[in-house]
Design a protein around this nucleic acid. Structure first.
Lengths: 337, 337
DNA sequence: CTGAAAGCGCTTACAG
DNA sequence: CTGAAAGCGCTTACAG
């Protein structure tokens, strides 16, 4: 086994001190050119790279950031993380990923773990619903950004979109089309501000339209299968339903597929909408009306913000990103019943 | 800002030496009970946790493993990584993820980066096609496992499935159904042993059936859009085609959707198959014949193998996992033409 | 059972 | 421009 080479090996072979080797890489201008070249050549031939632990200990900087995501097994988070990670790597940072599920009320442990293991900054999906985590982050001054939901008033900066507004826009649109019996299929709501905002938007839109009593919310875990199963119960329990708002394209996919089994025509018999505008949304049959979400942008902008905060120690500015209501043929005004 | 507490802070407050504090956590049996309790109480109240860099430097262990994946923006890798990461976290390891695309001929840089940044072991998707990376890994004795493709003969252990066999099984099945004009849509092939094996399986099956001349392979990047686009060209350029084998369910999804536009009925006019058995496969219209791949199992078993290798320094045993041909209504014998 | 001390591999203020 | 030395925060062999 070839042991890892260290500064002293390079120094020895280049006939300089370890200080000079270190300077060659960290403050090259401070080293005479011919010496620098010799050191670089030796380092190269020995395959030298500084021990990250020693460097981190000495510099008090790890160049690691942590990402807390609900799961990777859901395209939209994976996509966000993909752009986040790519941006960070490009700047010499490594990323620790930790999946924690959808409930943000117990974020202290994962946040603590990430920081204890060296994360200098944190990306967290969704609002932090755990005061211990907030206190810890504040006391330790860990640059943190929350993504996926924009929170105007939160002391922790957020780079995301307005879940209430996006859902409200869609719900109002359905109301205008004349729907009076609507069902929302939501994802897990506990400790999940995104779902809570969407439900609130749905209920308020219904209330203002005077159809609150016929507005149902059904909560499920994200999966095609659940989407299909829920559609069966809607058909059985709320047959008057003319519009199903799915808080995920995944649900909508399952719903559409179950509609076929139930011989329900979309949109003639039922309007179905999704959320996220995943790439399959436009290829479903019929194409899905949904809300396009800036997943890649959230990842990239969060990375940029964190990078900047780590360098300048300045406060991160929140950013409210745009969503886009994409109307496709899965919506229409409801049949007269 | 509350500075991070260190051993010496705890030692001072507990009126013991730093050695005793350290022992309290690392070899508790070697500390008198009442002292130990006092130390733990103080550490707790101070929110102490050891500095990972100092610990890593001293122990020469980082408890970090690296994962090299093509992209997270593809469900099957995200799923594998999800189970990999979950298993590792449960054992106190952190994971660095690095996305590198599908071409494994330039793995030296990413492998080097991960190891230089402290990864003690590596998970790599696909065969390593870069000799510098192999040499580096061997010289430094970095426990490594390759996943997604099982390689009987490779010196680097692999925990995956036999891409040749899986594809061959499907191709032979289609041949038996009577297909004589088949097209395979493959993902990126450069530096990608999985695709190469699948293409070989397809070509050999065709050759043995005497239909090599009408067997086409079309290479594309993975996306629904590409799947749809390819279907258009197949329809235009190879109208005699009766079966399209997609090396990804994503392609197949696009192909099926384009078939609708082209007024092609599946499977009456055309047989379409996928690969991966993603959760949507059975909900497509018609349900997709595909190959189920053990994504979660690959992640979990690779994690286990790496964990074990890091602890025992023993050689990792390769494992050939099973795939499953799932026949659904998107296949049938071809129409007589 | 406990403490003083060495040392893991770096970087940088200090002196020359 | 260069080197000797201190020190980042741990763990553990050594001595008691």
């Amino acid at each position: 086994m070839k042991p890892k080479t260290k500064v002293s090996d390079v120094a020895h072979r280049a006939r300089v001190s370890v200080a000079t080797v270190s300077r060659t890489f960290n403050t090259p201008a401070a080293v005479r050119e011919n010496v620098r070249k010799r050191v670089i050549a030796v380092a190269q031939s020995l395959g030298y790279s500084p021990n990250p632990a020693a460097k981190a200990l000495r510099m008090q900087r790890t160049n690691i950031v942590g990402a807390v995501v609900p799961t990777l097994d859901y395209a939209i988070y994976a996509q966000m993380l993909n752009s986040f990670q790519t941006a960070l790597s490009a700047s010499g940072y490594m990323v620790f990923v930790l999946t924690v599920g959808f409930d943000n009320t117990h974020l202290y442990e994962p946040v603590r773990l990430l920081v204890d293991r060296g994360a200098e900054a944190l990306l967290i999906v969704g609002r932090i619903e755990d005061d211990r985590a907030r206190t810890f982050l504040a006391e330790r001054r860990i640059p943190t950004v929350t993504t996926y939901s924009y929170q105007a008033d939160d002391p922790i900066p957020s780079i995301g979109f307005d879940n209430y507004a996006a859902t409200r826009q869609l719900a109002d649109y359905l109301v205008r089309l004349g729907h009076r019996h609507m069902v929302m299929i939501s994802g897990p709501t506990r400790g999940n501000d995104r779902q809570q905002s969407r439900i609130r938007a749905f209920r308020e839109a219904a209330a203002e339209a005077g159809i609150a009593k016929t507005a149902q919310v059904i909560e499920r875990t994200y999966s095609l299968r659940e989407g299909a199963a829920v559609m069966r119960s809607i058909h059985a329990d709320f047959p008057a339903t003319t519009a199903v708002m799915c808080n995920s394209d995944v649900f909508a996919f399952g719903v559409l597929s179950e509609c076929k089994n139930l011989r329900l025509h979309v949109p003639e018999d039922l309007t179905v909408t999704g959320f996220d505008n995943q790439d399959f949304a436009g290829l479903l049959d019929p194409p899905l009306t949904t809300i396009a979400v800036p997943a890649t942008e959230m990842g990239a902008r969060s990375a940029e913000a964190l990078l900047n905060a780590v360098k300048t120690r300045q406060r991160i500015a929140s950013a409210r990103l745009e969503t886009n209501l994409i109307v496709r043929s899965s919506t229409a005004s409801p049949p007269s019943r």
